[in-house]
Structure formats: C-alpha cells, structure tokens
Design a protein around this nucleic acid. Structure first.
Lengths: 247, 247
DNA sequence: TTTTATTGATAGTAATACTATTTTTTTAAG
DNA sequence: CTTAAAAAAATAGTATTACTATCAATAAAA
C-alpha cells in the first residue's frame, strides 16, 4: 500500500534539530501528542515531557526552541496529513463534486490511521487540533510566524479545497473563506458537541462524525448552489444589500 | 437615548468582587482590555496590569481569582453587549429577514460604541475577542467553566440567532451550528484578512467590515434557501449521501 | 469619630521558561 | 577495536509568573 510510504514534509524553521531523525526526537513528538492531550497545552511543559520519556528539559530544547514551536510543528503534521489523505483519495477522481465530498469526509474524520509509517497517533493529534488548534495561530506574534511560513501547510490544505470549489462554481466569490470555514467549522462542531452542546446541532457519541459530514455536505451544497432569484426570503438580495439597520 | 442606560449583566461566579462597583474595579476592566490588546493574552499579567493602573498584583486578586477568569469576564461583557445591540436594533422589526440582516451587521461591526455607559472601549474589546477569544473556551477545564455557566451569554447570543433562523426556515435542521458558525466566521475572517490573508477572501482595510457583512449575508441567504432538487451539481443530494470514499 | 472595609506595600513560595556547563553515553570513522 | 565526535543526561542557575500572606495606610460608612 502506497499511503504508508508517504512522508510528511515540515518547514525546517520550526525546529532546531529534525525530530524525525533520532530516537529521542521521535519520542518527543510521540509523547508530546499524548501529553498535550492529557494535560492541555497550558499545563504541558518540557519538564513534564522530559520526565514522561525518561529524558530532560535540556534535551528537548535541543529539538525545539519552545513549547509554541513544538505545538506548531504538531499542527503542521496534522495539516500535512490532511493534505496527504485528500490527495490520495482524490487521485483518480475527476468529478469535482465527488472530490468535495471526499474532502469533507477527510476533514470530518480521523478513523483511518497511517499506523505503519510513523509514531504519531493521528486520532489523538486530531483531538488536540480540535481542542487547542486555534492557539497555534491566535497570538501576538502570528505575523512573525507567518513570515517564516509556519502556516504554509494550512494554506495548502485550504488551497486544495478552494480549487475544488472553483471547479464546481467558477464564479464563486468566497472560495477561500468557505474553505477555511469548512475546516474551522468541522473542528468547532466536534468541540461544541462535546463541551458546549447548545452551540451545535450535533451531539456527541458514535454518530458524531457521520452527522458532521452530513451537515458539512449540506452547507457546501447550499453555498455552491447557483445563486437564484426565487428565494424563499420575502426580502430580495438587492433589498438586503441596500437595507441598513438604524443603530 | 435608551441604549446608553442598558446595563450588562455578568455571571457573578466569574469574579470575586464586582469590578463595576468600585473605582479600582472599573480601572481593572478598562485597562485589562487595553493591556491584553497591547501585549496579547500570554504576555499579559496581573503584575503588569497593576503597574499600569498604579496598583498592585495583590489588589487585582481581590477582584479576580486569576487571569483566565478576568478574560472570561471580558468575553461575557462582549457577548452581552452583542445581545443588547441585537435586541435594541430588532425591537420594532417583525420581518425575520430584516432581523437576520441586523444580526449580521451587529456581529460584523463594532463601529458604534456605547461610549456613555461604561468604561470599556468596545472597539478594542472586539479586537481582543477576534484575536484571543477562542482561548476563553478552548482549554482543559471548559466543562467546569461551563457548569458554572461561564458561557451562558455566548449561548444566549447564539439563541437569538437561532430563533431568527427558525422564523425564516422552520424546517432548518442546523440552526445552532449555523448561528455559532456565523459568529465564529465573522471573527475568523477579520483575523484572517489581517494576518493570514490566504485563508479569507476579504482583505484588510477600510471596507473590511462592509465586505464581511456582504459575505455573511450571502452565506446566510444560501444556507436558508429552500432545499431544491435542481442544483447545478452533477451529483444529486442522494448520490452525495450514499457515495463513500474508499480510503 | 470610630469602626470597618478597601487598598497599598512588602515578602515569600512553587512552578515555569529558559540558559549554561559538565559528565556520560552513543555513534561513526579510521 | 580504538578513538574522536556528536548526542544525551545530569545538574545548576536565573528571571518571571502565578499565586498567598501579612500588615500598614487610607478611605468610606456608621
């Protein structure tokens, strides 16, 4: 099987020494995923990580400058993994609607692991992305991080989605926003279903991912429908545009 | 004018002593907004806040148990302020489409301040919600916070939106997810436009909020359109539902 | 005016986020 | 198999954070 041989490329500015090349490095990645999941990003420290792999703080600093970069490394892993899954699964597909369907399946679902290739438990990685992901790019120094291309993989992931959207609806004006919205909403709805259920129509349990897919399909289909004039709405699109609230 | 007299209710479990009732308390709120905006949530500390208002760390701890609760207090302020603006502006409106329009205007826009009532600069508050907001509910102890009703105002805000959605389309199945998606997407698109422009179709500048509103109207209209069978898509809804990718 | 509540000043602790140094272990090359 | 080089472990140390505690000064209320 090809999928197992795919390797994930990560921007080398994120790390000091490539963690995939050594035993300790791989242990750092493997256990940081487990420990962030267990403790949450705030309570996770290099000292605790060192202890959990029988190593020390100092040794971890030789791989990552700080906790934030290690976390961004994990996010990149996740984004690259999504891209790989999308690419593999759309390889022989020509119909863009089918492609969009597959993309939604991929971003909503982590059931299938690349167990053989690497030491990262992708299901847990997905969970930490859902719970903590936004912290990777919501902070004072995003612009610096962005200049160093730390979010390049996220952009590539969204680009894949944008291309399919444009294939379906060449005149669609909001492809980028729709792409990031699909990804962010997928994660948000999983999180809300589990922790703030009044903010989502989905409920936690066995069928969460199936219902999420169904909902995202529905959203995607509606958004990409040919803009028509006979909307149910009593107010026409033009009315909407000109109407201004008085506040 | 009524708006200036509206007062914002905040869950009293969030604070130790009500900051609105004393001079020092009001200064804490006012300057925490400014300082979080300036430093970011991570670099913001009670010590620095104390220094910036000519007080001490210890005094601030008499109002808030910790930084997180102070931040959640600010989020609640923001959510309550949104609710107030929605309520005031939809007071005499009966058409639900007009109401939805107003809601979108409100969540996309902070141009109009309640300058007279309080000491909080809502424009800056909005900025910190856009940049840091998600951190308030993405952490290991959400469930505890949620049990204490720390997110009640966010839910109320979304409920307002849900009610309007249901008025427009009583059979709509995803009202809650759509409501939270509108709010989250509004903030994300402002943030992306400013920091990760490849993730949004909007661009920063003078017209950001106008374009955001237009986009959100479009999304809302499309999502609430009567599900029809004659979609552009070459694949029917049924095909979408049954089709399964092979990964 | 006196009691009480609030704030300010100061001190102290455990943990975090590092940096630095030195020794031990592992690996790689001759 | 030996030796040199690289990597990791052990240890120590610093500034800052996130608190808690105490006590004096000041403001407010009775």
């Amino acid at each position: 099987m090809y999928p197992l041989l795919v390797n994930i490329k990560i921007n080398d500015k994120i790390y000091v020494r490539d963690p995939r090349k050594t035993n300790l490095g791989r242990k750092i990645i493997e256990h940081s995923v487990l420990l962030i999941d267990e403790l949450g990003l705030e309570q996770f420290t290099f000292k605790k990580l060192g202890a959990s792999i029988g190593s020390t703080e100092g040794s971890i600093y030789r791989y990552f400058e700080n906790k934030h970069k290690l976390f961004v490394y994990l996010l990149n892993w996740y984004w690259e993994w999504m891209i790989v899954r999308i690419d593999l699964n759309t390889l022989n597909i020509t119909d863009p609607n089918q492609k969009l369907k597959i993309i939604i399946d991929v971003i909503a679902d982590t059931a299938i692991r690349n167990t053989e290739i690497e030491f990262v438990n992708e299901e847990i990685l997905h969970r930490i992305v859902v719970t903590e992901g936004a912290k990777g790019y919501h902070h004072k120094l995003v612009d610096e991080d962005n200049e160093e291309q730390f979010f390049h993989s996220y952009k590539r992931l969204c680009e894949r989605i944008v291309n399919v959207i444009i294939e379906i609806q060449p005149q669609f004006r909001y492809a980028k926003s729709m792409a990031s919205m699909l990804v962010e909403s997928a994660n948000n709805n999983i999180y809300f279903a589990q922790h703030l259920p009044r903010l989502s129509d989905l409920s936690k349990g066995e069928y969460l991912q199936d219902h999420l897919k169904q909902m995202l399909y529905f959203f995607a289909l509606q958004l990409l429908r040919n803009p028509s004039t006979n909307v149910l709405s009593t107010m026409s699109k033009e009315e909407w545009k000109t109407y201004d609230s008085f506040y």
